[in-house]
Amino acid sequence: MMIEYENYVAATSVAEATKTLAEGNATVVAGGTDLMVQTAASGRGANTTLLNIRRISDLRGVALDGGRVTIGALTTITDLLTDGVVADAASILADTANRFASNQIRNMATVGGNICNASPAGDMIIPLLVLDADVELSAWRDGAVTTRAVALNEFFTGPGKCVKTEDELLTSISFNRPAEGFVGQFGKTGPRPALEISMVSVGVGGIVDNGGLTNARVVYGAVAPTPIRAAKTEAALEGLSLNEASIQSVLDVADSEVNPISDVRASDWYRRHLVRVMTQEVLQNVANG
């Protein structure tokens, strides 16, 4: 299907972009790797104005400031693979980037786009939830750019849906630099090692302590309408000394907490099965150091 936009705006500042959004009927395009596929297939995202934000150079890059890591919305997946701050402070992001799409897509795809697309299978969301990230939303209100912060954990409301309003631009993502002893693990499954939409993805993080994790985080993708933090599983894991039997008990909790559906990619049975074996894998990795 061909889509005709009436206007095209290539903004070079957050002010210009948010002003355009305030005028209404605009669709943001960053890397376009979700948007172009969706509009071509179903017309989703079609609007009067196409707003290209890729020329807002302030929105690209990773910074560490006062113990807080900030990632610009336009930071690409490839950037995460090569960034020094990421490697040093949050390597789980690079590990995830390493399982993301293909080189060509990684060069175009942005972190902000991955979040705003709000897919339950969005890969970058998983480690960012493990890291307790917040997103910064900017809008043009009363003649100026105003911002608000939303916990990523409260950002998603359903498949393709989030609390961001139509006039808001996601400008950055930030989280506290994880404490000493933090480990984070990401896992994803599909028949192909590359170019795969996750059937199930899992993220686990925490501070290694006494053969277990404290401040444990467990996150699942593609098992519910949004990526989820598994609170009960986190509680079961908290401070637990990890061995074969205790890992099995955590898996039972995880199994009770997810509610996957059957679709063309996998049955609910298989998704549940993957939740178990992939959680087992990352917990064993943690246990084995």
Partner: peptide
């Protein structure tokens, strides 16, 4: 009916 869900082999495998 698309390359996302109809899985042809890709180079890495």
């Amino acid at each position: 009916p698309n390359f996302r869900d109809y899985k042809v082999m890709t180079a890495p495998e």
